[in-house]
Design a protein around this nucleic acid. Structure first.
Lengths: 162, 162
DNA sequence: GGGCATTGAATTGTGCACAACTGAATTGCG
DNA sequence: CGCAATTCAGTTGTGCACAATTCAATGCCC
């Protein structure tokens, strides 16, 4: 055995492939994080904070819940993050009037002004990838499909706990 | 203006694209983490701990430094992680004889035995992606190229601090 | 209207990532 | 040889991710 050119892969093949693909994704994500860390240092933002600011720059004030839906993050991550942005003077938070459970987050003057200084960030990042725009777009599409598939598969795996 | 069908993208275009690609990668990485969390729960491993075990299963005992090179992680992350694996009885650590600075990490009996129970993990993960094997391989190659490009670009960006 | 489930934010606790630093061992160079 | 630079692991501190819990506000159904 162990000589099937294009036959069904063995558990060994899967194990090695798994080590490669999950690590490749993990490494790419962290490499991105490292680059953003350097590029965003002048702005005083971390990578996740930048993502929140992108959402607010594009859509304006919204409830914490809605930010979480945009970024796939829950209040456990967002609450302290938004507090730090508030302490930095970039974000303003206030309880919603019509629903006292909800907290709306919006930009301060300073937070809005930061958008101009952030304008060059994306171009630098894309340039650093060395990818053509079309390739970036295709990779993004593939990753989104991957995320959707994984999210869909998760409940099925959880159901295995029987 | 704002009507250049295929012309050079504006800063606005980059800003939106940026939000998509960096977020897509981030989201995919976290979706993977969530799936692994469920699948690995029986084994009592976290996702990064599983990556370390994969390295040790494949290559056997090695210095902490070398594990870090495989996984692109430093001692600040690995030291406590290996301690937890040691506390769980899966990993054994000892100072190297010929170089007292180095600590070699290896598998215990129990750690080696866990490999058998982990055998089905990769197949479940790959299945959950809904991707063909060839597509997984190609995605992995693209991500590796991306990581290499980002790592190469990082020093250039750091040099901008002038 | 009263009781009960649901929702939204916040908090707590665990673990990972990384920068900065410490300290000990080793290397290399004059 | 002797001492400075380097290397390796570990620690500390900050921030993110996420599960689990808490608590108040809201919605719902009888």
């Amino acid at each position: 055995m162990t000589e099937q050119p294009t036959a069904t892969p063995s558990d060994q093949d899967f194990l090695r492939l798994d080590g490669q693909i999950c690590f490749a994704l993990n490494a790419a994500s962290r490499a991105f994080g490292g680059l953003y860390r350097v590029v965003l240092k002048d702005l005083g933002l971390t990578y996740p904070q930048y993502l929140v600011m992108l959402v607010l720059w594009e859509h304006g004030e919204m409830p914490v819940k809605e930010i979480g839906q945009h970024l796939r993050l829950d209040s456990g991550t967002l609450s302290p993050l938004l507090k730090r942005l508030e302490a930095a003077g970039l974000v303003r938070r206030e309880r919603s009037a019509e629903d006292e459970r909800s907290v709306r987050a919006g930009l301060t003057e300073e937070g809005s002004a930061l958008r101009a200084r952030a304008a060059e960030v994306p171009r630098r990042i894309v340039a650093a990838t060395g990818f053509e725009l079309a390739e970036v777009v295709e990779l993004q599409a593939r990753l989104s499909r991957l995320t959707a598939a994984l999210d869909a598969a998760l409940p099925l795996e959880e159901a295995r706990e029987a």
